[in-house]
């Protein structure tokens, strides 16, 4: 059997790992997601669990969440091969900032009340989440699962986070809080996409149906805004 390799920089640009870094890019309405990096008093940590394992009710984080400490890493190796007990986060806080690395050997549980959007310093892109999970799964199981396979079990929840972010941007003020807007969004996502059919949440897992759910979300937001006189 041909040896499978962990994906390494070269098959992607390091900047592709991030959705947003630093206060200018981060959006406070985005729900906490796998790979988000948070600043604690004296350290950074990153969320390790698959998005489906972070919440029981779809809205609130579980009381305790599995994280890995994110530590300074001097010079990044040209190839990431061999560095299997970590996941690199180049220029974590901005283009000229230092490099960091999530250390899988020193995992920890933290209270979810410490993972707030105010102390979030980076969100990973879908590609970044896939790379992190590939390394994390390999560290725990020695199985190398291709990132395009991992993508299929991450893309649905990632789409939910995208929709929730926009929903909360537009509905938090009318509903009084980000949490209320997130609940409203989640409730809408749990409903069937068509009468008697799959839920919108399930449809987000299907590449063919995804764009239809996004369009429906925009229509629903416009309807709600008109209803509340915005």
């Amino acid at each position: 059997m041909a040896a499978q390799k962990l994906e390494t920089v070269g098959s992607f640009e390091w900047s592709e790992l991030y959705l947003a870094r630093g206060s200018e890019e981060l959006v406070s309405t985005r729900p906490v997601f796998t790979g988000d990096v948070f600043k604690q008093e004296d350290r950074f940590v990153t969320v390790l669990q698959h998005p489906c394992a972070l919440r029981a009710d779809g809205v609130n984080l579980l009381p305790r969440v599995l994280v890995a400490p994110v530590e300074r890493f001097g010079k990044l190796p040209e190839s990431w091969e061999g560095h299997t007990k970590m996941c690199f986060f180049p220029h974590l806080e901005g283009d000229k900032s230092p490099h960091f690395s999530a250390m899988f050997k020193s995992i920890d549980l933290v209270g979810s009340d410490q993972l707030t959007v105010d102390n979030r310093v980076a969100c990973l892109s879908l590609r970044g989440v896939n790379v992190l999970l590939q390394r994390w799964v390999h560290h725990n199981s020695r199985a190398v699962i291709d990132t395009y396979v991992i993508n299929d079990v991450v893309v649905g929840p990632y789409e939910e986070a995208d929709i929730a972010q926009e929903w909360c941007e537009r509905r938090s003020e009318a509903l009084g809080s980000n949490e209320a807007a997130l609940k409203e969004c989640h409730s809408w996502l749990r409903q069937p996409n068509t009468a008697g059919g799959l839920s919108r949440q399930d449809c987000l897992e299907d590449a063919q149906q995804r764009s239809g759910v996004r369009r429906a979300a925009l229509q629903e937001l416009r309807r709600l805004e008109q209803g509340s006189g915005q």
Partner: peptide
Amino acid sequence: LHELGFAWRDIARMVGVTVP
């Protein structure tokens, strides 16, 4: 583009810029 149903990340990728 958004009304057509594209995700912002896909628009960003095809245009060659970041989502922010």
